[in-house]
């Protein structure tokens, strides 16, 4: 028995991966598939393109995707309904507080205050939204490839 293909399910979660197309986000959908001979599940990845005109999703975000009644183009078959887990900005579902790994942000801040917070230290209230270093110092929104040709142009996506 194999699972139904992710692309035919009504709604599912997917992780956003870099995509250069405008108004479209690419998603990686992981499914576990049963190997009948070994009776063991193995992860399978599928890639889905979803309509996202406002670019709600950034690389790494986990979003809820919905199947469109009919395909927009040959590739775009879904649309982004909601960003569920923005990357690096996790909220604890029980208390509704922001979390970093195993600690609440408030707790960390309080500890810092006890030691005497520095003025030039990082401050969440003043920090701009994610994406202000995009294309400057942070190149995670690009699909990075190994440089294979010296064209004379400087391509930030080439490594």
């Amino acid at each position: 028995m194999t699972l139904q293909s992710a692309t035919r399910t009504f709604m599912f979660l997917g992780q956003c991966v870099p995509c250069v197309k405008q108004g479209v986000s690419k998603f990686k959908v992981k499914r576990l598939e049963l190997d009948e001979n070994l009776l063991k599940y193995f992860p399978k990845q599928e890639f889905v393109y979803a309509h996202d005109p406002e670019k709600l999703c950034k690389t790494g975000d986990i979003a809820l995707l919905e199947l469109l009644p009919e395909k927009l183009t040959r590739l775009i078959s879904h649309k982004v309904k909601k960003v569920i887990y923005p990357m690096g900005d996790i909220t604890d579902p029980i208390t509704g507080k922001k979390v970093i790994v195993g600690q609440y942000r408030d707790h960390i801040e309080k500890v810092n205050e006890v030691y005497g917070r520095r003025k030039d230290a990082f401050d969440y209230q003043k920090a701009p939204q994610r994406g202000w270093q995009e294309d400057k110092k942070d190149f995670t929104h690009l699909e990075i490839y190994i440089k294979y040709h010296e064209s004379g142009k400087d391509d930030p996506a080439a490594v």
Binding site: G60, M87, G88, V101, A127, P128, Q129, R130, D138
Partner: peptide, 13 residues
């Protein structure tokens, strides 16, 4: 980057 994106960007800068 995975834990705390805002701090990550601030640190890069």
């Amino acid at each position: 980057r995975r834990w705390d994106y805002k701090r990550f960007e601030w640190l890069l800068e």
